Amino acid sequence: MTTAFSSPLPAEIDELWERRADLTPDHTEARDTIVGAVDELDAGKARIAFVDSDTDEVVVDERAKRSIMLSFRVLGMEESSVGDFYQHDRIPLKRRFEGVRVVPGAIARWGAYLAPGVVLMPSFTNFGAWVGSGTMVDTWATVGSCAQVGENVHLSGGVGVGGVLEPPQASPVVIEDEAFLGSRTMVVEGARVRRGAKLGAGTILTSSTRVFDAQTGEELPRGEAPAWSVCVTANRVQSFPGGDFGMPCLLVLKRLEEGEEHDKLALNDMLREHGVNA
């Protein structure tokens, strides 16, 4: 964690974490502190992680993540309903949607922040996630617990953005501003999609995925889609005692100009040249 960073959440969260095994819903004072901290996440006044503009590193607010995990200790199971649909859970549904378009069938849990201008098609946004202004969470897409999604991002139909809770210091998935994730793309295990990157349909990116530049053959940092690039899932032959096998990797097909606007038709044409759709 960056030394200059100071969590906006109360230090009492750290004290409660040290005695978390003893906490129950009967500890009302602890519950009030924890609920207050998660309310700050829900309102966007705190967040699980962010990209430090000076170091370009992902900074994790361990106290924020601890507040989420502690809530499972102090909140009891409760029944709630939306129309004919019933829930029985410790974590209630989100109620703050100022400036957010929520299409019927969309679900967001309390503790997730949705900035004004977000559009939720029938989708699922989990506990502790952050979704920036102008972002579209398309049909059947999922934003996992604590995942960080930037501004003006398009998560296409069926996209899976993975979640992470434990350990507290673990970095969540980060999707930076202006990114595009094609249909059924999966980004998990703390992987990072940098600003302006476009991922073709069905792309798989994990923290250990090897990344290669198609033009130069250069190997790039693992688990990251480079900024302002067009990427797809590919296979790279690797030799084992039992033979040669194609291992999945991320292939950078093209570098875009920084700030280049996303042209869906141009992107589709580019990907189709390589047998992939957006």
Rank of each mutant, 00 (worst) to 15 (best):
residue 229 S to P: 13
residue 83 G to R: 11
residue 136 M to L: 15
residue 30 A to P: 13
residue 183 S to I: 14
residue 130 W to D: 05
residue 77 M to V: 08
residue 58 V to E: 01
residue 207 S to Q: 11
residue 122 P to N: 01
residue 40 E to L: 13
residue 270 M to E: 15
residue 39 D to T: 12
residue 182 G to S: 11
residue 1 M to H: 11
residue 58 V to R: 05
residue 210 R to L: 01
residue 249 C to S: 11
residue 99 G to V: 14
residue 202 G to D: 10
residue 261 E to D: 12
residue 48 I to V: 13
residue 28 T to M: 15
residue 253 L to K: 10
residue 186 M to Q: 07
residue 147 A to K: 07
residue 174 V to W: 03
residue 185 T to C: 10
residue 134 G to M: 14
residue 173 V to E: 04
residue 262 H to D: 09
residue 139 T to V: 15
residue 252 V to P: 07
residue 266 A to D: 07
residue 245 F to S: 00
residue 16 L to F: 02
residue 135 T to L: 07
residue 230 V to N: 05
residue 102 V to N: 02
residue 5 F to W: 13
residue 237 V to I: 07
residue 244 D to E: 00
residue 182 G to H: 08
residue 160 G to M: 06
residue 232 V to N: 00
residue 24 T to C: 09
residue 179 A to H: 05
residue 120 L to W: 14
residue 79 E to A: 15
residue 231 C to Y: 06
residue 152 N to Y: 14
residue 271 L to K: 10
residue 251 L to S: 14
residue 190 G to C: 10
residue 33 T to N: 05
residue 58 V to M: 03
residue 183 S to A: 14
residue 50 F to D: 02
residue 149 V to R: 04
residue 146 C to N: 07
residue 47 R to G: 09
residue 132 G to N: 04
residue 113 Y to H: 14
residue 212 F to V: 13
residue 74 V to S: 03
residue 219 E to F: 07
residue 80 S to K: 13
residue 193 V to I: 02
residue 41 L to Q: 08
residue 249 C to L: 06
residue 60 V to L: 04
residue 205 L to Q: 05
residue 233 T to H: 08
residue 168 P to V: 02
residue 85 F to L: 10
residue 68 I to E: 04
residue 199 L to F: 09
residue 274 H to W: 11
residue 145 S to F: 00
residue 256 L to P: 07
residue 278 A to Q: 05
residue 203 T to L: 15
residue 222 R to T: 07
residue 99 G to S: 15
residue 262 H to G: 08
residue 51 V to N: 01
residue 95 R to T: 15
residue 232 V to H: 00
residue 183 S to K: 12
residue 140 W to P: 08
residue 246 G to Y: 07
residue 92 P to C: 04
residue 53 S to C: 02
residue 189 E to C: 08
residue 242 G to S: 05
residue 95 R to D: 07
residue 71 S to A: 01
residue 255 R to H: 09
residue 52 D to M: 06
residue 273 E to R: 15
residue 120 L to K: 14
residue 90 R to A: 04
residue 118 V to M: 10
residue 253 L to A: 10
residue 92 P to I: 04
residue 252 V to L: 07
residue 126 N to T: 02
residue 257 E to V: 10
residue 160 G to F: 03
residue 60 V to F: 01
residue 129 A to K: 03
residue 19 R to A: 03
